[in-house]
C-alpha cells in the first residue's frame, strides 16, 4: 500500500493531479480537491506523475 498525503495548506485545487491519477484524485462539486489517502502499489507511477504536475508541490508519498 502507498500512503498519499496532500498538504491542504498549499493545495490551490488546480486539479492537475486529477489528469494523472484519476483513481486517486478528483475535484468535488465545489471544485475542491478530494483524494484517496491509501492506494494500491500499482498506482505508484500515476501518483508520481501527479506529484510532478502539481504546481504547488503539495502531494507527497509517505512511505
Amino acid at each position: 500500500m502507498i500512503k498519499v498525503e496532500v498538504d491542504m495548506t498549499k493545495c490551490q485545487h488546480y486539479g492537475q493531479c486529477v489528469f494523472e491519477a484519476p483513481d486517486i484524485f478528483r475535484l468535488n462539486s465545489d471544485d475542491k480537491l478530494e483524494y484517496t489517502a491509501e492506494a494500491d502499489d500499482s498506482e505508484r507511477a500515476n501518483i508520481e506523475a501527479a506529484i510532478d504536475v502539481c504546481p504547488m508541490q503539495a502531494i507527497h508519498i509517505v512511505e
Partner: peptide, 11 residues
C-alpha cells in the same frame, strides 16, 4: 477565473 471543473473539461 475559478470554475475549475469547466476549465478542466476543455483539456
Amino acid at each position: 477565473i475559478g470554475m475549475r471543473s469547466v476549465v478542466q473539461s476543455y483539456r
